[in-house]
C-alpha cells in the first residue's frame, strides 16, 4: 500500500476505512472496502489489469471514469467489469483477461 497519499496539505489526512482482503490473478491483496478495484490495485503497485485479446499487449487504467473500458476484468466470474468504477468488496476474486486462442489479425492484409 506504498502508493497511498496519507497526508495532503489541503485535503488533510486520508479517511479511515475498513481494510479487506481480495484476490487478483490468484494473489492476495488488501484494499479499502468500497474503493474502486483499480484504486486498490494501483495502491498495491499493480498496473497491468489485462492483456489485449488479439496481440496480448498489456493494458492498465486509461480514463479511470468508465469511458474507455481498458480496465475491464472478470469479477467473481463475470466478465467485462470496469475496475475503475466497481467498488471493492471482501473476498472478491478478480481475474485479468488475456489473449484469445485464435487470431484474426491477418484478415485485413488478405482483404486488400
Amino acid at each position: 500500500m506504498k502508493q497511498r497519499i496519507i497526508d495532503h496539505p489541503v485535503l488533510g489526512k486520508i479517511e479511515e476505512r475498513k481494510l479487506i482482503t481480495f484476490r487478483f490473478n490468484n494473489k492476495e491483496y488488501r484494499g479499502f472496502e468500497q474503493e474502486s478495484i483499480a484504486a486498490a490495485l494501483l495502491a498495491n503497485g499493480v498496473r497491468t489489469l489485462r492483456h489485449h485479446e488479439e496481440n496480448g499487449t498489456p493494458r492498465g487504467i486509461y480514463c479511470n471514469i468508465g469511458h474507455c473500458y481498458e480496465c475491464r476484468v472478470a469479477v467473481n466470474g463475470i466478465q467485462g467489469v470496469r475496475a475503475c468504477l466497481t467498488p471493492l468488496q471482501e473476498g472478491m476474486v478478480i481475474e485479468s483477461g488475456g489473449r484469445l486462442p485464435t487470431t484474426v489479425r491477418d484478415w485485413r492484409s488478405e482483404d486488400e
Binding site: I5, L11, I14, T57, I61, I65, C84
Partner: peptide
C-alpha cells in the same frame, strides 16, 4: 477526455490526465 495518441500510449502507466487527477484527489492513490 480527448486522447492524444503517442507511440507507446497503450502501456500500463499511461493514463489520461483526468485519470491521474481522480486517483490522486479522490482515491488518494499516487
Amino acid at each position: 477526455e480527448t486522447p492524444v495518441p503517442v507511440p507507446g500510449w497503450t502501456l500500463p502507466g499511461v493514463m489520461s490526465v483526468g485519470a491521474a487527477q481522480v486517483m490522486t484527489n479522490v482515491h488518494r492513490v499516487k
